[in-house]
Design a protein around this nucleic acid. Structure first.
Lengths: 348, 348
DNA sequence: TCCCGAAGTTCGATTTAAATG
DNA sequence: GCATTTAAATCGAACTTCGGG
């Protein structure tokens, strides 16, 4: 491996000068162009690449950000990760990806590993259940800029980027209502999930504004679970129960896309064609929603932008600590967007 | 930050002794238990965590593996990444994730960044088009243990893990044939894609063994493209052309799941119900295949196992270079598996 | 000779302080 | 004092060598 000393020897200058020149440090102002040229040529010739370990040891910087996903297999992750990666790339940071598999022990172990690597920032993708408040305590004391995606934590120790669930819930119901649907079934999110209640609040807001009645017999909750696939199965089962109980409805508003997929499966099984016999809406707009037939009408979370936003906040935080500024946590709530596809149509 | 010297001071021993004890180095045999206890207690008390930069600088090891994905948004990635992550975790390695977005410049930049970080191994997920042989040359000279997933490169500089496309192609057609289908349409992979021809070879093998005729009018190729979504669109378009040309077929064998989704969309649009009027098979078994309705019959690539296998090979390689052993590249070909769901059924 | 522990060197780059003409 | 260059200290851990009992 060629070191700075090799370049010094080759160029005939000291390693100090080489360092100053190659880093274009302030002192480089005083160094004549010929010297610079000679040093640069020598570095080039030898193919010199500075050792990052030595550099980091000295500067205490890693140019690395930790990314912690709670369950990689959740389709929600993909685009968020893309947004994170792309924004880090622009800033010449590299991400260390960890997947805690919804396990506490794994979370703790990974957190220690990341801290040991002196990550300069941390992004946590708390996509699904994230019950354990104690975990967050561990995070708070880590004192590095941290941003949560998909889960808000009041207070100014940790930033967050979440979707505006209320607006999304409202938009979903508004869409169905304006298509003429009046008898609508609802599969709400799990009670312990933070997204569930604001999403429902948006729905209630819409019913009030539009004078729509909700039949309590047509409202069910997804059970608590840490497995993203479970909402598919639960969606299927709950929809099947609606049908077996001979409930009448012309549309079904599902908590998320997975639930909607499960619901569609159940409807299909009982000969209820979508959208002819029953319209279905989801939430998230995961990749599969555009791929399946009929493609799903859903509320899109701007996932790539959310990932990018989280990185932006973390990068700001990093710069703040470098300049010893104090910066309060940011809490961004981004607007979702109704995406109309073919799983919904006019009632009747 | 608490250093080893702080622990030395606190415990009353030298930093040498502290290092020996905390790392349980060979010399630790000679150190009395009381000394060890005192040192461990001091370290505990101060919350000492060794500085990884210093450690890496000395040991020249990073305990880090680079993971290079060609397009993160390809649904194929998710499970492979999970397999990679999980296996690295067991071995206490951390992955740096990079997504080259199918761009050459990005590939080169990321490769340099990873090399600068002194990654000990590299895993490349060449899921989709990976035409540029020159890129591989860059990789070869990097001289760190490298494994390609989804693309084989003969020679012993780089290992690979691929699915047995021939077996998969064979299994797909065998399934359709044994359901009684005789008029089958085929959407083959892009000509430039390495997977395409062995998959087709498997299909031809099956036709020969079973005496099945293939109508050349019912065989088309996916166009070349770097975008994974394009195979959805192409699948849709090509299927539509089959229909418009009034070709008769009772089953369609698609190159991959994305293509199959596109085909199903086209069939549905023209009132050809799946599977009643036409059976459809895919290849890969991406997450969406189990979620859509009808769920897709497909050939599953054991993606998680492939990711795990690639890590295994890389880890072996790392150990080999540590022990200065020479180890030839491995080329693993894993068997795919037919997954029968509801998009196929008996003909007639 | 055997055990235990410490002093000093090394890894490679950055930076401070200081020496040249 | 100015422009130009450099010796030496530093970052934190690990390993080699050596000395005392």
């Amino acid at each position: 491996m060629v070191t700075i000393r090799d370049v010094a020897k080759e160029s005939g200058f000291s390693s100090t000068t080489v360092s100053i020149v190659l880093n274009d440090a302030p002192l480089a102002r005083y160094i004549p162009v010929v010297t610079k040229k000679r040093i640069e040529r020598a570095a080039e010739k030898l193919g010199y690449r500075p050792n990052q370990f030595a550099r980091s040891l000295r500067s205490k910087r890693s140019h690395t950000v930790g990314v912690m996903v709670f369950d990689m297999t959740d389709p929600y992750c993909t685009l968020v990760l893309r947004g994170i990666e792309n924004t880090l790339y622009q800033a010449s940071y590299l991400p260390i990806l960890t997947d805690v598999h919804n396990e506490r022990s794994r979370f703790e172990r990974y957190l220690e590993m990341l801290l040991d690597r002196r990550i300069e920032g941390l992004i946590v993708l708390a996509n699904w259940l994230f019950l354990d408040i104690n975990l967050l305590a561990d995070l708070e004391k880590s004192s590095i800029p941290t941003t949560l995606i998909g889960c808000e934590l009041k207070g100014d120790s940790m930033s967050s980027v979440i979707v505006d669930n209320e607006v999304g819930g409202y938009a979903a119901l508004e869409h169905l209502h304006s298509l003429g649907h009046r008898k609508i079934a609802f599969i709400r999110g799990p009670k312990t999930l933070a997204d569930s209640s604001p999403r429902w609040r948006g729905i209630r807001k819409c019913t009030k504004e539009r004078g729509l009645d909700i039949d309590n017999q047509l409202v069910v909750d997804l059970p608590d679970s840490r497995d993203p696939l479970s909402s598919f199965e639960a969606g299927q089962k709950l929809t099947e129960e609606f049908i077996k109980q001979k409930r009448e409805f012309t549309a079904l508003l599902a908590f998320d896309d997975m639930t909607a997929f499960g619901a569609i499966r159940a409807l299909d099984k009982h000969g209820w064609r979508v959208p002819e016999r029953c319209s279905v809406t989801g939430f998230d707009d995961v990749a599969a929603s555009a791929l399946c037939t009929p493609p799903l009408t859903t509320i899109r979370q701007p996932m790539e932008a959310m990932g990018a936003g989280a990185v932006g906040i973390v990068l700001e935080g990093i710069n703040s600590v470098l300049e010893k500024r104090e910066v309060a946590a940011q809490h961004r709530k981004v607007a979702p967007q109704l995406v109309v596809r073919d799983s919904t149509r006019k009632a009747g």
